[in-house]
Computed example of a mutant assay.
Amino acid sequence: MSKDKRILVIASGNQGKIREFQGLLADLPVTVEAQPDGLDVDETGETFQANARIKAQAVARLTGHWALADDSGLSVTALQGAPGVHSSRYAPTDAERIAKLLAAMDGLQERSAEFRAALCIAAPDGNVLLEVEGCCEGQITREPRGNGGFGYDPIFEVSKTRRTFAEMPPAEKKHYGHRGRAFALLKNPLQDLIKAS
């Protein structure tokens, strides 16, 4: 590792998410590492931003390096914002989460929803260095469409595209997606932080 590269630990055990961040961070002078195996941080926050902060601070303290955490999920208007911060725990598997959400919306005309992604970078002393939030608006389809993506992607139709995330190639999903939008807000300030450190 060259001395001008800073280690940035991704506060996640999800390999797909780590690969996504490695791609997003590829042209920054950082060495991306996964959090230690077996680490599980309790997400006790009531907002995506609070959960991202909890995870980033815990992993930064534990590893002694800057840590980047994200918390994201789906908020459905007709369900008073559910599943929200419980998106990944709404049911045991992606297929069951989709089935449960579609059942909860059965017969509802109001289908608007949004994906939100909160990103937080924390230092080992617990200081929050950066926080941003990205949003993608759309609506819940009446049945799954497409074979790509993961999670709720097959039932989330992105506004003005007439396609679900699961029907989009990865580059297009990155363009419209909440995590890509949040990262676009994070990138330049992160670059400045690295230069100043």
Rank of each mutant, 00 (worst) to 15 (best):
F48L: 07
N127D: 14
Q49E: 15
A11T: 06
L108Y: 15
D37P: 04
G23D: 13
G148L: 06
K5G: 08
L119C: 06
K174T: 13
N127V: 10
C136T: 06
E157P: 04
R6I: 15
L28Y: 06
A56N: 06
A26G: 06
A56E: 12
L185A: 14
A103W: 08
I18C: 01
C120T: 01
G107R: 07
S112Y: 10
K17T: 04
F156S: 01
R116C: 13
D42Q: 08
Y152C: 06
K187R: 15
P170T: 00
Q35F: 02
L25W: 03
A99V: 00
M105W: 08
A82L: 14
Q22V: 00
V41M: 00
G151I: 06
L130W: 03
E137L: 13
P83S: 05
I98S: 04
S88H: 14
A34D: 00
K17S: 13
W66P: 08
A58S: 15
A99M: 01
I121E: 02
G180N: 05
R89I: 10
D71C: 05
T164V: 04
E110Q: 07
T77F: 09
D40V: 01
A166D: 10
H65D: 11
Q139M: 13
S75R: 11
G180I: 04
V158W: 09
G126R: 02
L129C: 14
G13L: 05
S88P: 07
S75Q: 13
G64S: 03
T161K: 11
I98F: 06
E110M: 00
T31C: 14
S112A: 11
A171E: 15
A171H: 13
A60E: 08
E43A: 00
L193R: 12
R179M: 04
Q80F: 12
D70I: 03
G148N: 05
H65Q: 15
G73Y: 02
D40T: 03
G13Q: 13
G180P: 05
K5V: 10
D153Q: 07
S2I: 03
E96L: 15
V30N: 07
D42T: 12
D42R: 08
L119S: 10
P189R: 09
G23T: 14
A91R: 10
A95F: 07
P169G: 00
F115I: 00
Q35N: 02
D153N: 05
Q109W: 04
I98Y: 00
G64H: 00
A113P: 02
S159C: 12
T161P: 10
